[in-house]
Amino acid sequence: MLTAVFWVLAVVAVAAGIAVFTVDSMARATVALAVSFVAVGTALLLIDAGYLGVITILMMLMEMGIMAVFMIMYMMNPGGLMPMSMLHNKRGALAISIGAFVLLAAGALLTPWPQRRGEPPSDVTRALGEAVMGSKMLVMMSVSAVLFATMVSALVLATGRGRYDGDEAPAAEDAGGGA
């Protein structure tokens, strides 16, 4: 039963992924990507990764909501007024990606994976929380620093007036002192 559910979710995830690059509207592509993420998040729920599955679904739905705005901003064929191919070098890309799939699938099927060690803890989410606040705290501290740096640098890059408010960059000797 669970296996059947998994295969349905897998087919939905991959089909939605293919739809991302075959629909002719970039807004629809965003929705297709969201469907793919929801299917993957639900598949994670099947293997007891409750927290990870839910956070994948919630985060990716929000992310696709934001992404849709940008997609519409940069849409190549708004309202179907400028029909054009969104692809270049389709044959080469197809060959490379099919090759990558065959290679990865062969690796997945032919590798003698080790036996499962241990059983999942009774409360998986609690174990994750304790790891994040204990033995793996350094990982999460680094991630938070990276996220903060991302916010700052994304704003600096995207803002219209730029780093120097439209003026020329100051000379090197008085540029010290940071922001």
Partner: peptide
């Protein structure tokens, strides 16, 4: 089974990253 799903998703994404013209795609 899960690794096969991952391989398929990765290959589809690779196709898109290589073939799309728009930066956002």
């Amino acid at each position: 089974m899960f690794l096969l799903l991952a391989a398929a998703l990765f290959a589809v994404g690779l196709f898109g990253a290589l073939s799309q013209q728009a930066v956002v795609m």
